[in-house]
Computed example of a mutant assay.
Amino acid sequence: MAGIDLLTGKVHALVKDRHRSREFIELLRLIDAAYPPNTAIKLILDNHSAHISRETRAWLANRPSGRFELTFTRKHGSWLNLIEGFFSKFARSVLRHIRVASKHELKERIMAGIDDVNPHPVIHTWSYKLAEVA
């Protein structure tokens, strides 16, 4: 699981065996701790059940008002979420053709790849204009 800060390009990542509500909340805690308390954090998410679960909503309800703002992509609209493109490029460049002996080694390689990406972040700009298709 990961998120990209659109202003800085930094990737916040967490590697877990599963992607349930508790793991997603762990990522939210990681992101929450990375920013000053009065900063609004806007997330673009797909409709994965962990993102909309009762447990996740309860955790978000206990955060200060306005801390997290969630926007959900439409079904089959993952291309709207920059992290999906990042995952694709990351898999092709960092994870392609590697052999690992364990899940632990895979996790270490993924986090090492993230650590290599973050010192030289890519700041993405959205250039698609709806007026061009209308």
Rank of each mutant, 00 (worst) to 15 (best):
L27V: 02
L27H: 01
R29C: 12
R29D: 09
R29I: 09
L30N: 04
I31P: 00
A34H: 06
Y35W: 09
P36A: 14
N38R: 11
N38S: 13
N38D: 15
N38L: 10
I41G: 01
K42W: 07
L43I: 06
L43V: 04
I44K: 01
I44P: 00
L45H: 03
L45S: 02
D46L: 02
N47E: 05
H48Q: 08
S49I: 07
A50D: 02
H51S: 04
H51E: 03
H51M: 04
H51V: 02
I52D: 04
S53Q: 05
R54H: 07
R54W: 03
R54Y: 05
E55R: 09
E55F: 00
T56F: 00
T56S: 03
R57W: 06
W59Q: 02
W59M: 02
W59S: 01
W59D: 02
W59H: 02
A61G: 10
A61D: 11
A61E: 11
A61N: 12
N62L: 09
R63Y: 04
P64N: 13
G66N: 06
R67D: 05
E69Y: 05
L70G: 01
L70M: 11
T71E: 07
T73K: 03
K75Q: 15
H76R: 12
H76G: 06
G77C: 11
W79Y: 13
N81Y: 01
L82E: 06
I83M: 08
G85C: 06
F87D: 05
F87A: 08
F87S: 06
S88C: 12
K89L: 13
S93Q: 15
V94Y: 02
V94K: 06
L95N: 07
L95Q: 08
L95M: 15
H97A: 14
H97F: 11
H97R: 13
V100R: 12
A101E: 14
A101V: 12
A101T: 14
S102I: 07
S102K: 07
S102N: 07
K103D: 09
E105G: 07
E105S: 08
L106Q: 03
L106N: 04
K107N: 10
E108T: 14
R109A: 02
I110C: 08
M111G: 07
A112G: 08
A112L: 10
G113M: 06
G113N: 05
I114M: 03
D116C: 10
V117D: 03
P119A: 09
H120L: 11
V122D: 09
V122R: 12
I123V: 15
H124G: 08
T125C: 10
T125N: 10
T125H: 13
T125K: 12
W126C: 15
K129Q: 15
K129V: 14
L130W: 08
L130A: 12
L130S: 15
L130V: 12
L130G: 15
A131G: 07
A131W: 09
A131M: 09
A131L: 11
E132N: 15
